[in-house]
Amino acid sequence: MQKDRLRELSKEFYRYLKNEKGVATNTQRAYEGDLDHFLKFVMTRPEDKVDHKTIRAYIQSIYRQVKKSSLSRKVSSIKAFFRFLKRKGYLSENPALIIKNPKIEKHLPKFYSVDEMFHFLDSLPAANWLDLRNLAIFELIYSTGMRASEALGLNLEDIHLEGLWVLVRGKGGKERVLPFGAKARDAILKYLSLAGEAGQGGRRALFINAQGDRLSYRGLLKIMKKHQIQAGLLKNLALHGIRHSFATHMLNGGADLRSIQELLGHSKLSTTQRYTHISIDKIMEIYDKAHPRR
C-alpha cells in the first residue's frame, strides 16, 4: 500500500477504535501515538510502498531506544492497524502478519498487604468533603477491585447504596455489576452528604474535583502519592496497586480464580492467573497444614 494512502486510512482506524470498538481514552491515545510515530518513520523512507520490510526497519530503528514493553505495545498497535485494513478490504494481504511481538519480562503486580491496605485507608483524613471523596473512592476501588479509571467514570445513577452494588463500564464498553461492602457504602454516603452541604450536590459524575468537574486520573494519582507518603508507606504503588491488592487478598481469602476474573473484568483467565504466583506463600501454608506426608 502507498504510504500517503496509509496515513489517510489511519484516521478511519482511529474513528473505528472510538466509535465501534469503544476503547478507553488512554488506550485510544496510546494507539494514535504509536501509529503516528510509525507513520512519521514511513514518510521518511525513500520507497513509496509499505510492506513487512518497512515494519521490520521501523522496529530495528527503535529497538534500543524504548523499553521492551513499549516496543511490544507499538508492534501490537501496528498489527491491529493492518488487521483492520485487511478486514475492511483495503489490503489483499496483511504485511504485519509475519511480524512477531518481542518477548517481554512479565513482572508480578505490586500490592499492599492487608495490614498496609487497612493502614492506608484508616490514615486518610476526613476534615472536609474533598477528604471524604478521597476516602470514598479508595474504599470503593478496594471493595470492588474496579480499575481507577472505571471508578472515575461512574455517575450517580450507577451506584446503588441500598443494594450494595455498582454498575461499571469497563474496557470496550463492557458492563458488569460489582458488589461492595458497608465500609465503602458508609464512606460514599458521608462524602455525598458533605458535598451536598458544600453546594456540590446534583452533579452527574459521582467523584468530582473542587471545581465541580469529574475528577481526573492524574488528579487521583497525585492524591494517592501524597497520602502514601503521609501514611509512611514506602511501596511505590500506582493506582492499579489497590486493584492488585483486592485480587491478591480475595485469592488468599479463598475466592476462586473464575470469580476473581469476573469481578476484575478480565476477558482471559490467564490474566487473572498472575495472582496465583503472588499467593504462593499462602498455597505453601495450606499445603503444610493439609498434606499428610510432607
Rank of each mutant, 00 (worst) to 15 (best):
M1Q: 09
F13M: 13
Y16V: 06
Y16D: 04
N19I: 11
N19K: 04
E20H: 00
K21D: 07
V23R: 03
T27W: 04
T27H: 07
Y31L: 07
L39H: 02
T44F: 07
R45F: 01
E47T: 14
V50R: 01
H52M: 06
K53M: 14
Y58D: 01
Q60P: 03
Q60K: 07
Q60W: 05
Y63A: 10
Y63T: 08
R73A: 13
V75L: 14
V75M: 10
S77N: 00
A80I: 01
A80Q: 10
F81L: 11
F82G: 02
F84R: 00
K86Q: 14
K86L: 15
E93Q: 15
A96R: 06
K100H: 09
N101G: 04
S113Q: 08
F118E: 15
F120M: 09
L124W: 03
A126L: 11
A126I: 13
A127D: 15
R133V: 03
L135Y: 01
A136F: 01
A136Q: 11
E139S: 03
I141N: 00
A151S: 08
L152F: 00
L152P: 04
L152E: 06
L154R: 03
N155Y: 00
E162M: 04
G170R: 07
G173A: 05
K174Y: 01
L178A: 00
F180C: 08
A182H: 04
K183W: 13
D186M: 09
A195E: 15
G196Q: 12
A198R: 13
R204D: 02
I208C: 08
I208N: 08
A210G: 07
S216L: 05
Y217Q: 14
K222Q: 13
I223N: 10
Q228R: 02
A231L: 05
L234A: 09
N236H: 15
A238Q: 12
H240A: 03
G241V: 12
R243N: 07
S245N: 01
R258F: 10
T271A: 03
Q273I: 11
T276Q: 10
T276N: 02
D281R: 04
I286D: 02
I286W: 01
K289C: 07
A290L: 10
